[in-house]
């Protein structure tokens, strides 16, 4: 048995090292090893339980009519707890791994609108299947015939107005907009159409200014 929970930890570290916008290659080998570790813990636990049952049966046979002895010695109890906690921990870390990958796939559907080939190559079969099903469900929801009839992936935040105000987070120079030119500098505020602000918001050049028209007229 390897160091307890080390593999699951490595799995998550690997995913974390890839940043939020990308996926790490699905590490099938490590996942299989974690499962085998869980199996090993399970078999150990089963061995202890069967041993306990055997002792219990012997005790019952030896002293028929007497009250059966239910007590387990401290060492056995601790060992059982340890194995059980290890199983739970590995399970938890595996679920985090799967969930995080799933969230990133969803994020890609919303921001990139399609799964890039490079990312697709890093997914396992079931992840690709999940992505396709999610994409299909979203598509249906956005369709005119069965859903709301608008492309919800255009905005990262539901727009309140056709124009938005944004504030520069880095000096990225001049940008060409539909109404003219604007220079994005740290701390400058720019008003522009919501759809043109979206790419700038996505790449972190600007941030949205929470604007309300007067005192709370336009705020939620």
């Amino acid at each position: 048995m390897s160091e307890l929970g080390r593999r699951a930890r490595e799995l998550l570290k690997e995913l974390k090292s890839y940043g939020t916008g990308t996926l790490s290659p699905y590490n099938e080998e490590l996942v299989r090893l974690i499962f085998s570790e869980i199996d090993e813990h399970n078999s150990q636990t089963e061995a202890i339980v069967s041993e306990l049952r055997r002792k219990q049966a012997e005790a019952e046979a030896g002293a028929a009519g007497a009250t059966p002895q239910q007590e387990v010695d401290e060492l056995t109890a601790t060992t059982m707890c340890l194995h059980y906690e290890c199983i739970k921990r590995n399970k938890r870390l595996l679920l985090i791994y799967m969930n995080e990958r799933m969230q990133r796939l969803k994020e890609m559907r919303w921001t990139l609108r399609a799964l890039p080939e490079a990312q697709k190559a890093r997914c396992c079969q079931s992840e690709i299947q999940f992505y396709n099903e999610y994409s299909r469900a979203l598509q249906t929801y956005m369709s005119k015939s069965e859903g709301v009839g608008m492309d919800l992936t255009l905005d990262t935040r539901p727009p309140k107005d056709t124009f938005v105000n944004v504030r520069g987070l880095k000096d990225s120079g001049e940008v060409i907009l539909s109404y003219g030119r604007a220079t994005v500098l740290v701390g400058t505020t720019i008003s522009l159409p919501a759809e043109e602000a979206e790419p700038l918001l996505r790449d972190g050049t600007v941030e949205m200014v929470d604007w309300d028209d007067g005192f709370g007229r336009n705020c939620s």
């Binding site: 124009f163 105000n165 001049e174 907009l177 109404y179 003219g180 030119r181 604007a182 220079t183 500098l185 701390g187 400058t188 505020t189 720019i190 008003s191 522009l192 604007w211 028209d213 007067g214």
Partner: peptide, 29 residues
């Protein structure tokens, strides 16, 4: 002013400045 421009749909860029040199630098284009 920003509030007024927003209500009337006028696009703007607001640059806080602390010296004339800064104004000059932004006006170069």
């Amino acid at each position: 002013l920003m509030n007024l421009f927003n209500r009337e749909g006028i696009f703007f860029t607001l640059i806080p400045v602390d010296s004339y040199e800064e104004v000059k630098a932004h006006c170069e284009p």
